[in-house]
Write a protein that binds this DNA or RNA. Structure first.
Lengths: 233, 233
DNA sequence: GACGGTATCGACGTCCTGTCGAACGAGTCA
DNA sequence: TGACTCGTTCGACAGGACGTCGATACCGTC
């Protein structure tokens, strides 16, 4: 019999940091406790540090444990697995990206073009700031169902917001009608995901880091408005 | 010391199947031989069969060997690793997709819109016909450098062809000027890759299989021409 | 100064990987 | 026919990573 990662999701709706308890409490094996928190933090810090230098597959539980100054079995006292650590880290970055794109969407936004540019930039900046994690997430996604689910939820949120924005642009007559807004949103967000990944990972053909936002924006505007210059404010 | 997968690329320019020798000869450990060829084929068939049902990570070398009716050590007589099998399989599918998209590009193509639609459809059809492999490839890419390189080479070829086509559309005044054609090609091909993957894998938000070509085409046309209706033939 | 929960680790069993060396069988050549 | 080669096969091994169990040390408290 194979043991499942064993943790009941509980509140994965990740409220934006309830100030006190980190989302790790739900993810880890242990209930909240004061003394061991530094260990937990040490593990997380070690993970982020190591992942900035090597791929996830080259980081073992032992590396994480040693990096945090504890033994391998002790690691399991804090996290159920290597992936659980990653999930905790991702929760944070996702909350960051979520906040940033939400801000971009809700902010004043002079004209429409500027609004979209801000949203794409927010997304770009956040993941660029956590390159290692971004790469590790992509790696884990193919083998870990929880990572897949977390990403699906997050992605879905962005798609919803984009689809709503596209529909509102269509309603005011600025954006051209065409394929369903939601399908368009899925396609464009997928593009961003893959293009940014290629740019950050550096292997294979990619758009230069300095141009990537411009290029993505150009495709977004072309797909939504039919040209790079949406009309009206 | 860790042994590398140990095979000198030789001719990875994959000529479209020299009729006689399969590309596996270059990939595997052994020189061409008549008697063991069925074993080799059996391994490849087993791999494709198993990958249609479970992810790559759930298929062990032992599964492959048993499936082909041989023992695990014997497997290593034919292939250097599980990934080498996958690489051989990918060589084939890639050649297929390459031929299909090349045909789409070179074919008569009544109007421009139809040309692009054909190219996207070719890509879509090929990978849909090998769902399991497509998913496995994505999984292997994150851990295996050879898979990454193979994909980079293939992807680059498509980008080249697309960029050239975009430039020629710009030259004749049909496509709008904008970001460099190559950057645009990278972005659009990346989108296709990610969107199709999501559609085939079925987890997370995705475009329905029946709509995906239409949606992708719409974004391509919007990005290249500025609307879904390119002018002229 | 016994107790209960926190925290820690040594040792174990399992799974998978890749390799080594011994064997087996079918041709070939003396 | 018997020795010799060469393609092919596999049992057995060693290594690495994972996750678990049970014993212990630490610590605040009653």
């Amino acid at each position: 019999m194979v043991l499942r990662d064993g943790h009941d999701d509980g509140n994965l709706g990740h409220v934006p940091m309830p100030a006190g308890r980190s989302p790790a409490a739900a993810r880890g094996r242990r209930a909240a406790r004061p003394s061991g928190d530094d260990r937990e933090l040490a593990i997380l810090a070690t993970a982020e540090r190591l992942l900035a230098a090597r791929p996830l597959s080259a980081v073992s539980v032992d590396d994480l444990a040693r990096g945090a100054g504890i033994s391998r079995p002790t690691f399991y006292f804090y996290f159920a697995s290597k992936d659980a650590v990653l999930l905790t880290l991702l929760d944070r970055v996702v909350a960051e990206a979520d906040a940033a794109t939400r801000a971009a969407f809700d902010s004043p936004a002079g004209d429409a073009r500027e609004g979209w540019r801000r949203a794409i930039t927010a997304y770009y900046e956040t993941f660029r700031a956590h390159r290692g994690l971004t790469l590790a997430w992509a790696e884990a996604r193919s083998t870990n169902a929880e990572v897949r689910e977390l990403w699906a939820r997050v992605f879905d949120g962005w798609v919803d917001r984009c689809a709503a924005a596209i529909e509102s642009e269509r309603a005011r007559g600025a954006a051209r009608a065409g394929v369903p807004a939601r399908d368009l949103a899925v396609a464009l967000n997928s593009m961003n995901e893959r293009v940014l990944y290629a740019t950050f990972s550096g292997d294979g053909p990619a758009v230069a880091e300095s141009d990537v936002v411009t290029v993505l924006l150009d495709v977004w505007l072309g797909a939504i408005y039919g040209s790079s210059a949406p009309s009206g404010s």
